[in-house]
Design a protein around this nucleic acid. Sequence first.
DNA 1: CTCATGCTATTGTATATACAACATGAAGAC
DNA 2: GTCTTCATGTTGTATATACAATAGCATGAG
Lengths: 240, 240
Amino acid sequence: MKYDHIKQSLYRKIESGEWPEHHPVSSENKLAEEFSVSRMTARRALQELSDEGLVVRTRGAGTFVAPLKSQSALLTIRNIADEIRLRKHRHHAVVQLLEDVVAEPGLATLLQLPQGARVWHSVITHFENGQAVQVEDRYVNPVLVPDYLKQDFTAHTPHEYLCEVTPLTEASHQIEAVLPSKQQQIWLELAMPEPCLQIQRRTWTREGMVSQAVLTHPGSRFRLGGHMTFNKKQQNKPSL
Amino acid sequence: MKYDHIKQSLYRKIESGEWPEHHPVSSENKLAEEFSVSRMTARRALQELSDEGLVVRTRGAGTFVAPLKSQSALLTIRNIADEIRLRKHRHHAVVQLLEDVVAEPGLATLLQLPQGARVWHSVITHFENGQAVQVEDRYVNPVLVPDYLKQDFTAHTPHEYLCEVTPLTEASHQIEAVLPSKQQQIWLELAMPEPCLQIQRRTWTREGMVSQAVLTHPGSRFRLGGHMTFNKKQQNKPSL
DNA sequence: CTCATGCTATTGTATATACAACATGAAGAC
DNA sequence: GTCTTCATGTTGTATATACAATAGCATGAG
């Protein structure tokens, strides 16, 4: 197919690194002439590359190679409050801590702040039908989200607030199984230590990293579930 | 925009439940006439709904509402062997069990087999640089994959084999933190019990469920990671 | 009844065209 | 120098048309 031929050709130039990030891509008309097809066919190739996240197109300006990091595996997880409400269960939150603290050196680097800078810190326990199912330990970039400490997080979750005030572009996740610390055990109202699912999540806007959250769930009260179908569009086939 | 008007209209019918799963959607020509637009415009609306996973289109047959479950969170995880090789580490596998057993009642139902039917069962331990990082406990549908037991799973993982012989269309995941059983502890060569990340994964083709796998990772030796970017196409924004 | 054939509806690909909306830079007014 | 205006190139939307490839059904042959 002609449009696929064009796609493959552009694919090679981008993946080989011949065209780096933000490098301009030939316009629809140029491609049409080059490959001897109509503009609509060339357009389709560019459009599909755009849908796949390989190029960015802006009307009037042109088409450009997208930032490459967007390639790798992706993982979407719903907001805990939405999840609970979706199950028609009651949700409430208790704010355990809401303060500003000196950032750990590693965190300061990630947030592109000077060593010793202060960052916002919150610890919130989320309850489903009165039972603690998540403790959310979060650090937030004060430059990008100056008013974080003034919010009432019993009414809206930090997730909902951050979604409103920042245009998120990227996120990374890390999931592991751990035993909770003494302090986490208290926040989760656990009588005995038990294996917990711990999710570390970092989110970015174009201007830098916004937030790091460590979400800890008691293994006996929480499962993380997902369901997916395989479209043509998804290049990375998941494993079984 | 006209194509968006059509999309919204179809959106409502699907999300309200007025059109259930597999309900036929008006053809391109019907929609074109109904909304007084050209076929290409109606086509675009259907195409985008298809890209978003809301409808399924097959040439010659028509357009139908997609199975709704595909809506929820999605989660892609790489094959363990690929993952290890990607890190330039050594991977090898030990086949602990490879047998046919009578299916549990629940499993038989899921696989659409009569009660008491036999299914393939394999248990394989995966090693990264000589250290056990996953035990894969898998049940496979003998109707859809008759030759499963004849494979050499030290050469290719079950994942790779199943990908080759079946056209997967759907998958579900469940992740939780647990303490391993005595038997799992042996398979993972763990001296002491420790929290483990346990992933249950089920996969389907159009003809039915293919396989259920329970993947158990020692918390101290394994982390599940992911990175993503947000496109316009993805309607479900992940939480932070 | 069974199988083969062909018709029709439907989606997929490709083209040509027109106009709208926007970005950018150049030329000109002040 | 600074601002405005305009021309040009680019992407976005919409239409009309043609033909290809396929699925499903109906019809007919055996």
